[in-house]
Design a protein around this nucleic acid. Sequence first.
DNA 1: CGCAGTCTTGAGACAGATCAACTCACGTGG
DNA 2: CCACGTGAGTTGATCTGTCTCAAGACTGCG
Lengths: 238, 238
Amino acid sequence: MAAFRAALPPGTDAHPVAARLCAIGYCLHLPKGEALDPDPREDRLVHIASGAAKLAAQPLADAPRGQVLAFHFAGDMISVLRQSAVESWGNFRLVALTDCELAVFPAEHFLDIAQTDPAVLRSVLARSLQALHRSRTRMMQMGHKSAQQRIADFLVSMAERLAGCTQGSCTFALPMSRRDIGDSLGLTIETVSRQLTELREAGLVATEGRSKVALPDVAALARIAGRQGSQASMTPEN
Amino acid sequence: MAAFRAALPPGTDAHPVAARLCAIGYCLHLPKGEALDPDPREDRLVHIASGAAKLAAQPLADAPRGQVLAFHFAGDMISVLRQSAVESWGNFRLVALTDCELAVFPAEHFLDIAQTDPAVLRSVLARSLQALHRSRTRMMQMGHKSAQQRIADFLVSMAERLAGCTQGSCTFALPMSRRDIGDSLGLTIETVSRQLTELREAGLVATEGRSKVALPDVAALARIAGRQGSQASMTPEN
DNA sequence: CGCAGTCTTGAGACAGATCAACTCACGTGG
DNA sequence: CCACGTGAGTTGATCTGTCTCAAGACTGCG
């Protein structure tokens, strides 16, 4: 049940409505490699209590390889939209990269309750605007970034999210495969591998085994990635 | 003042709090080519009553060309974040592509008032989640789309937003330059031009003058663009 | 220890960028 | 109203970066 409280936006987990929100969710263990089976009827909000997961497209006929929308880790709150009735649309699913502990809420019901406390709802809004802000920034940047910049950006993001590190040096394990990395960055596994090699030769990355990486200078990587701030908007664009 | 009411989320413009929201905003005429001068102190919500605008990065020293985050048209509600104190971050500004009528609200104050009515706040949340959803989809798709697919996708989006057309044929005028299009798609103006030529030769696009375009078969373009659905999340990704 | 799958490395192909003319639309002033 | 000039747009030739195809090497598992 503690997971349910943690699923609420920061600063509201001790709030009176928290108990009511807990009542409508359920816990779920998702083993490594398994997918959260999609519910065609309603949107859901998923909180990752522990583990790592990817939001990925099911390999379609016209899509040569599965596309990865995003990676999510412990503490993340994800909005999993119901599967579209439109056939041509891809079906996206949450797939566990490692064993995961999840808390799942029906979105409508969750918001109905959150709505009774404006502060909670506003907190959720702030969170989604922040996500939009970062998504926007990334979208734009990805549009004109080289493979090396994308890899550098990816590593900096992972350092921040997996090791809570934004400068200096850090070491952590990547829970996803090279293929997943490539699919999320729009690159092939060969290019991912080559760029990692280049960064390694430049002394900016050290690798051990398949997943462990060490970044001696996160700030230098961020500089290569050309990290910049951006804006958020509340309307669909382009 | 009518513009203020229209700035509210759909379905709430007749609501009691609407009047209070109107009281804190102000109208502004932004001539073509001019930028909304940024306020370093607070975030703002901007409603475009009429006209077209782009959200673009100021040309930085290390950025060869200004990058376009998104285009916005009449009816759009935009969240313009305050300029970051961090120097290395790009400063983004709203620039008018045509003469614009804007309604500007201080974000904090706006939400303080909207918060008094959960339904309004929830409507704003739904709107931002939708924006996030589409931003996410685009980001992923852009990662592995060809130049022709990006142009086709762009044209379909514009048909939808400027002419309210999702299938059949339609004609409209693009308010932005080829450079703006390229900057928003991560392509050069030469590539934009070449792809438009190819689509023209394929009979999928007709152009007249600099800005007018006719799409005989929007659905066919959407097919080329490889349009698919996706998911939304409330947490920053990658 | 050996197998299977992941990762790395190499050679050639292709899409898009870059550099460079050239053409045309549109606004301006005669 | 038309001639003109400027900047936007188009088109062409070449070059670079990433994908593709193809082996090979390592990791981690049984």
